[in-house]
Design a binder for these strands. Structure first.
Lengths: 212, 212
DNA sequence: GCTTGTGAAATCTTTCACAGCA
DNA sequence: TGCTGTGAAAGATTTCACAAGC
């Protein structure tokens, strides 16, 4: 049993992937081997076993892992068994896409507020929340007790939005605006740049093209 | 001079970040030190120097790096100096968001085709391309000479789309559908799951909350 | 016999610390 | 003097290989 051990970052970033694969596999089987899970997740089987060993000894030798049980354990360790109140700042296409992301409600993420600086967008819906103007953001964030905020504004607005979020006591921010935000140490911030993946892809295509 | 050396994966994934920071810095200064670049990118200065050393010796001791020159070199090494013909499959919110991503035209990514299975979306615009029905996808992909395809369909449609892409000879795929695609070895595939970042964030929030 | 769980080895990445140069 | 470029050390991650257990 290793469940007290610290889970390495690299493992944490793969757990959601396993969760997705297990969700698909659950429709077909009740038990899965590290080999099968690895094949469907596109990683090495030893890696799957080591990753899962950080959660504890949940497999059965000679058999594999019980899918339902594993799903519950991973969910628990990722904190996905708790409900989270999410705010989306920026009601553009990306904000809409995230709000309607199928996995959100199932993982306990509830969109309880949405904001946009554009008066034309105010009053619309984003994942069940009515879009409100930026002016009331601070007040509404506090009022709704928002746990996690997602920034999908243009880069130029993102830092000001982050400052308001922090003033409202939001401690968890997921930033999709292509700009590096500066936030206090206690705030948990993750930056995602959709363009970066295209650029990395470009690098590998470039290499392959050069080889040909 | 180290430019012949193989660039490590970890470095490749940071180069687009440096590019973004340099783009911002270019407005203020012509020269930047590894220390400043590191601070704005949120990494260690030694790491910046080592990363840049894989590209060659482009800095000046006692001074720093010439921003414009560095931008050009990184662009070149990432293959961003070449034009790429991009197709977007799935004209929903995420497809729209990506198509209108500001960085695309500037990096040589041109959206030359867009597709959707929904007849209501056909005829609309995605980043300057007219949305066409899925039936003509194979033909149009070949016809337009698409280099990179972006999948933003629901998970259920993604594998069939990928098969068509591969049949059309598209060798580079960026998949946003939350499902693992299986493709032949020669195809360069990158999977991005927008939900994964939320789940990782959840883990870290969970940990902090537990400590309190 | 089959598959997990895990030390140990191999590999990759980050950071240190300083020589070398403008 | 100030900052780069880089060996070497430290640290993290991945993979191997096999004992342990069903």
């Amino acid at each position: 049993m290793a469940s007290a051990r610290r889970i390495p970052q690299a493992t944490v970033s793969r757990l959601p992937l396993y969760l997705r694969v297990l969700g698909e596999a659950a429709l077909e089987t009740g038990t899965i081997s590290s080999e099968m899970l690895a094949a469907r997740a596109g990683v090495n089987a030893a890696q799957v076993r080591k990753d899962l060993s950080y959660l504890g000894s949940y497999g059965t030798r000679g058999v594999g892992y019980e899918v339902g049980y594993l799903v519950r354990e991973i969910n628990r360790r990722l904190g996905l068994d708790a409900d989270r109140r999410v705010a989306i700042v920026g009601a553009g296409n990306l904000g809409q896409a995230l709000a309607s992301y199928g996995g959100f409600p199932a993982r306990g993420f509830h969109v309880v507020a949405a904001f946009d600086a554009d008066p034309a967008k105010v009053g619309g819906l984003v994942g069940g929340a009515v879009v409100q103007p930026s002016a009331v953001m601070l007040e509404v964030l506090v009022d709704k007790g928002v746990d996690i905020a997602i920034i999908t504004t243009p880069a130029s607005a993102a830092q000001a939005v982050a400052d308001t979020l922090i003033a409202a006591g939001v401690a968890c921010i997921l930033n999709f605006a292509p700009v590096s935000l500066s936030v206090p140490d206690h705030v948990i911030l993750r930056q995602v740049d959709l363009g970066i993946e295209m650029q990395i892809l470009s690098f590998y295509q470039h290499r392959v093209a050069a080889r040909a």
